[in-house]
Design a binder for these strands. Structure first.
Length: 479
RNA sequence: UGCGGGGUAGAGCAGUGGCAGCUCGUGUGGCUCAUAACCACAAGGUCGCAGGUUCGAGUCCUGCCCCCGCGACCA
């Protein structure tokens, strides 16, 4: 029937995955699962790792291994995380894949009309081995604050991409909504950047300064700037230019990225696509950062929380739930163990888990486990669906929880235990069957967010019979 | 300094002109099917500050204060 193509950004493989990577995977997974549930039959959900560049070269040197060994190790760690989180991606691209390297060289050639060679003049500190901006240097009187020595003026020859000429087209695509940036606050940031006009960008490095990259076609002295080539993964993974998947799936329906890389995805990447004569993605969803204990995650602060620590204790679904409901979908959020445990105990164990278990218990106790005919649920799910369409995952779950609470209220109002005492079996059956239908509807809405939980709930009430849970859905943990 | 975002109950947030709301936490009451869970009610806010527009302002305008991003050839 219909196709759906979604990407996450591809994490830079210079270290281990953290919560920030986890949330991005889950965002995309919710959208992919929701698309499948809504009737998309052909879904490509791609993620991967970005593996070239100076940071990786340096890190490898530090650890006395080759860059390839380093990225092999780190890329695997991201694959492991995807599995732990139950992410339903069906592609995983590495920028060191041969296919990607060859295809990005084809892309380079195909946009060569917009590529020119130019001298780059920069202020360089030998101590830092780094270029600094004019403004930064000026602030420090042209003396490196780290090494207390004057910056050298260094001239380097690079290739440049004529990004500036695409400013208007990109602006037009954003303003017309054909390239939609969610949320609006992020869209506004980009529009104001575009209003100032984009500058051409350097897209290569001399190979004698940095060898760990993809060769520029026809010039052995240069490799592609890592970002330039990494962005191309979104079409090389589909087999640009000749593969039928590319023709079928491009443009992307959604690209999911973090707020730190918005410029690359809302300015440079559209520029590349326009130069190639390709359509822009339909939606760019920009999520915020996950802080830990109110502070930016940082190794030096030692406040990092490893995703697997959470998953090992509480399961993937609980973690997915926390990320999707308690990290604001349009903003930065905070992970703390206190908040996570509160959400787990109150919302998952007490409200949802207990709702399932009290319904199961009553059907067993009063009706020998027989539910009978289950009515169609008639709740209006428009708000829920609308929220997901707009990437308001937090609100979508609020909607689901309205119904979870609704069940608990319904049970308290109807008092099935009292009906049982009165002996009105048919009325009792209707009340419990209705509660079951609500739970099944909740399970369906939960599927994109908590796939395992959804299945567990559905398995309880298959075929009009109750299949008792071996364990509680969310066993309560002592704090 | 330039651009952008934000400052609403103890905490986290919603609310773009019409009696200040939600969740958690707190207190009181109810229920007993259930994971000591669930349900109801209540307390708690001079909506950053100062002016202005308006019959009426978290909501619009002006000025100011504070916090956070971006303005990097670090991905």
């Amino acid at each position: 029937m219909s196709k759906f193509y979604i990407n996450t950004s591809i994490p830079y493989a210079n270290g281990a995955p953290h919560i920030g990577h986890a949330i991005e995977f889950v965002y995309a997974d919710v959208l992919a699962r929701f698309a499948r549930q809504s009737g998309a039959t052909d879904v490509v959900f791609a993620t991967g790792t970005d593996e070239h560049g100076s940071k990786i070269a340096e890190k490898a040197l530090e650890q006395k291994i080759t860059p390839q060994e380093l990225v092999d190790k780190n890329s695997q760690a991201f694959k492991d995380l995807l599995k732990q989180l139950n992410i339903s991606n069906n592609r995983f691209i590495r920028t060191t894949d041969k296919g990607h390297e060859e295809r990005s060289q084809i892309i380079w050639k195909n946009i060569s009309k917009d590529i020119y060679k130019n001298k780059y003049m920069g202020l360089y500190c030998v101590g830092c081995e780094e270029f600094v901006t004019e403004t930064f240097a000026k602030e420090h009187n042209y003396i490196c604050p780290n090494h207390n020595r004057p910056y050298d003026k260094i001239e380097e020859e690079n290739y440049f991409f004529s990004l500036s000429k695409y400013t208007e087209q990109i602006k037009e695509a954003i303003n017309s909504g054909s390239f939609k940036i969610i949320p609006d606050t992020k869209k506004n940031e980009i529009v104001s950047l575009l209003n100032e006009g984009l500058e051409d960008i350097s897209i290569s490095r001399p190979v004698d300064k940095l060898a760990w990259g993809i060769a520029v076609p026809g010039d052995k002295t240069q490799v592609m700037y890592v970002w330039f080539e990494a962005l191309m993964n979104y079409i090389t993974v589909l087999g640009y230019p000749e593969h039928e998947d590319f023709k079928k799936y491009w443009p992307a329906d959604v690209q999911v990225i973090g707020k730190d890389i918005i410029r690359f995805h809302a300015a440079i990447w559209p520029g590349i696509l326009l130069a190639l004569g390709l359509e822009l993605p339909a939606i760019l969803y920009v999520h915020g950062f996950v802080n830990v204990d109110g502070q930016k995650m940082s190794k030096s602060l030692g406040n990092g929380v490893e995703p697997h620590e959470i998953i090992d204790t509480y399961g993937a679904d609980a973690f997915r739930y926390y990320l999707m409901r308690h990290i604001p979908s349009y903003n930065d959020g905070d992970f703390t163990w206190d908040k996570f445990e509160a959400a787990y105990n109150n919302e998952l164990a007490n409200e949802l888990g207990n709702a399932v278990s009290r319904v199961v218990a009553m059907v067993e106790k009063y009706q020998d486990g027989i539910v009978g005919e289950i009515p169609e649920s008639e709740h209006d799910t428009f708000q829920y669906r609308d929220a997901i369409t707009h990437c308001r995952f937090d609100r979508a779950l609020d909607e689901v929880w309205e119904q979870v609470r609704g069940i608990n209220q319904y049970i308290d109002t109807e008092k099935p235990w009292a009906i049982a005492k009165e002996g009105d079996a048919e009325h009792l059956r209707e009340v419990l069957a209705y509660a079951v239908s609500c739970l099944l509807e909740i399970a369906e809405m939960l599927e994109p967010f908590m796939p395992e939980t959804a299945i567990k709930i559905q398995n309880c009430f298959k075929e009009g019979l109750v299949a008792p849970l071996e364990h509680s859905l969310f066993p309560k943990k002592e704090a």
